[in-house]
Design a binder for these strands. Structure first.
Length: 126
DNA sequence: CCTGTGACCGAAG
DNA sequence: TCTTCGGCCACAG
C-alpha cells in the first residue's frame, strides 16, 4: 500500500521568491531548517528545493539581502556544500547572533528554532 | 525548447 | 547509529 500525498504542488514558478520572503523574517538569534521553510510554504517535503533556492542566491545578485545563514539542516548542522570554509564562517556568524553549537557542531533545535508565530506568508500563498 | 545544476528530509531496515 | 531510498522541480543560459 502506497501513501499518496494529498497536497497539491506548491513548488511552482516564483517559489524561490517565496522562500526568500519567508527567510527574511527569521529573526537574529533564531534558526530555521530547510524543511521548516517548506512547511511554512505549504509542503513539508520540499526541503531540497529550499536548499536550491538559497544556493541560487549566488546567481541572483540583484536579490535584496536574505539571511540565508539562519537556515540549517534538520540535524541542526550547517550544510557545508563541500565548502568547509564557508560553513565555518556561517557558524561564526550564527554564534555572533547568539546561537550556540556543541562539540559536534550541532545546534539544539528545541532551543533555537524560529517559532514563526508572526510569519507573513507571501502574497500569492493563501 | 532543452539541459545541467543544485544548502535536504524522514521513513524503513 | 548508519545507509538507502523516494519525494521534490525552478531557473539561467
Amino acid at each position: 500500500m502506497v501513501y499518496v500525498h494529498p497536497e497539491p504542488r506548491v513548488v511552482t514558478p516564483g517559489f524561490y521568491r517565496r522562500v526568500y520572503f519567508v527567510v527574511r523574517q527569521i529573526p537574529r538569534g533564531r534558526v530555521a531548517t530547510y524543511g521548516l521553510i517548506g512547511t511554512i510554504l505549504g509542503s513539508p517535503r520540499v526541503a531540497r528545493q529550499v536548499g536550491f533556492a538559497l544556493a541560487a542566491l549566488d546567481r541572483l545578485p540583484d536579490e535584496a539581502p536574505v539571511p540565508w545563514h539562519r537556515v540549517i539542516n534538520a540535524k541542526g548542522m550547517v550544510s557545508h556544500r563541500g565548502d568547509t570554509g564557508r560553513a565555518q564562517r556561517q557558524i561564526e556568524t550564527l554564534e555572533r547572533e547568539g546561537i550556540r553549537f556543541d562539540d559536534a557542531g550541532r545546534v539544539d533545535l528545541k532551543r533555537y528554532v524560529w517559532d514563526y508565530l508572526d510569519v507573513k506568508l507571501p502574497p500569492d500563498v493563501n
